[in-house]
């Protein structure tokens, strides 16, 4: 079994969100970078679990980004990937990024391609579907469970108010979310081992960008909270009904 896990960096969840250059660029000053939580907690850890169940499994990681992503990839390797490839380019366009990943995937003949359900910075939820289309593979988005029965994957995905279970013959591309696995932390042995795991640097292929960011903005701040005394709950209900028209 060969698994490719797509890894993206994202700002730490507590990072201050600000912009520079006339609001056209994210201000990365002082920002801590982490592995995008969906990639790490669900996509990568599920891949590691599959390898634990079948030690012949090979896990490759791929990321698209500059040299500053390397510490993130090392951490992912410390958790359990076997080797990593970094496509040496920064981009915010999903199609461009997906084209780079698809190119790497083509070389590897993977049985399973895992992505996180979205990155917590650009919230695109597009890479998995685009990679699948570029490779002409089936795709299940927002998976909450993934099991293997021989070369058939049994995948549960979120639907409105429930779940849907489907069988897909490998190879398959899956975007992962909560339910797939439980977050882990790397141990000392993993961290040591990661130092000598191969990390290839690949130059990008030519690909189009279909979108571009014009500018960013911050949401309006709330006017302030209206407090209702704890012994006047019916007053809150009245306000919600008459003033906010919310119930």
């Amino acid at each position: 079994m060969k698994i490719l896990v797509c890894i993206s960096k994202s700002p730490d969840t507590t990072a201050k969100i600000a912009f520079t250059d006339n609001n056209t660029k994210f201000d990365a000053n002082g920002v801590q970078w982490i592995i995008n939580p969906y990639d790490e907690w669900f996509a990568l850890v599920r891949a590691i679990e599959l390898k634990e169940a079948d030690p012949t499994t090979v896990i490759h990681l791929v990321t698209v980004g500059g040299v500053d992503v390397e510490p993130i990839i090392r951490k992912a390797l410390a958790l359990g990937g076997d080797e990593a490839a970094r496509v040496n380019v920064d981009s915010q366009d999903s199609f461009y990024i997906a084209s780079q990943i698809a190119e790497v995937a083509k070389q590897g003949a993977y049985d399973i391609i895992f992505t996180g359900k979205e990155t917590i910075d650009y919230n695109g939820s597009s890479i998995g579907g685009m990679v699948a289309e570029l490779l002409d593979l089936p795709y299940v988005a927002l998976a909450t469970h993934f099991e293997l029965k021989g070369t058939t994957a049994i995948i549960t995905r979120e639907i409105e108010g429930g779940e849907e279970i489907a069988e897909v013959a490998l190879p398959v591309t899956v975007s992962c979310q909560k339910g797939m696995a439980e977050a882990r932390i790397p141990n000392m042995r993993g961290i040591m081992a990661a130092r000598s795991k191969p990390m290839k640097v690949i130059e990008p292929i030519a690909a189009d960008t279909l979108t571009s960011i014009v500018d960013f903005g911050l949401p309006l701040v709330k006017a302030g909270v209206k407090l209702v005394p704890a012994d006047h709950v019916e007053e809150l209900v009245r306000l919600l009904h008459e003033e906010a028209k919310a119930i």
């Binding site: 917590i120 650009y122 919230n123 279909l210 500018d215 960013f216 911050l218």
Partner: peptide, 16 residues
């Protein structure tokens, strides 16, 4: 669209 999980928004131009 929303970015940074709702902590900001972005205006995106579609070029196609």
């Amino acid at each position: 669209k929303n970015v940074f999980s709702g902590k900001a928004f972005a205006n995106i131009a579609v070029k196609t």
